[in-house]
Design a protein around this nucleic acid. Structure first.
Length: 151
DNA sequence: GCCAACGTTGGC
DNA sequence: GCCAACGTTGGC
């Protein structure tokens, strides 16, 4: 069971959008190291979502929703479906990651341009802890059970 | 807006 | 296969 961190520019595609839509294809990655990481993803694995450029913080957790496949936009690259798991209780800013002794090995810090990277379970757990835990999304609206007219 | 870091391209 | 030039990312 691996753990991951992906970056997105929130003005292009934010975690809020993922939560609203409920499911997305993570594609458009055009870097071989990031692609190789994408290819290693397995359904059910957890993914920290980081907002680059605007925010500069980890905001939520997603889940790999299927096996990686060829990016429809470019045969040499890879896409993977994701679905939201929940928001962190509070975002965890890059500055905090940088100042946390247990997170100095993060690729996010050491290789700032990489957009898809593995994190250890310890790193994952620590970031979630700094974020005050995962706030599960409300389940999709269940169809209301029709109330019986009869008593 | 600037610039450092990094990746890619292409001439040789 | 090297390396200079160039482009992109992303924090500051």
């Amino acid at each position: 069971m691996a753990f991951w961190l992906v970056k997105t520019e929130p003005d292009a595609y934010s975690f809020a959008t993922l939560c609203q839509v409920g499911h997305t294809r993570w594609d458009g990655v055009r870097n071989y190291t990031a692609r190789n990481n994408l290819r290693l993803m397995k359904p059910g694995e957890r993914v920290l979502v980081y907002h680059s450029n605007i925010g500069l913080e980890v905001v939520g957790v997603a889940e790999v929703a299927g096996n990686p496949y060829v990016d429809p936009g470019h045969a040499n690259f890879t896409a993977c479906d994701m679905k939201p798991v929940g928001w962190l209780g509070q975002p965890v800013p890059l500055s905090l990651l940088k100042s946390d002794a247990s997170l100095q090995g993060l690729a996010l810090i050491r290789q700032s341009r990489l957009s898809v990277m593995p994190v250890s379970q310890a790193e994952f757990d620590r970031i979630v802890e700094l974020g005050g835990g995962i706030q599960p999304l409300l389940p999709a609206k269940a169809p209301r059970k029709p109330r019986s007219a009869k008593k």
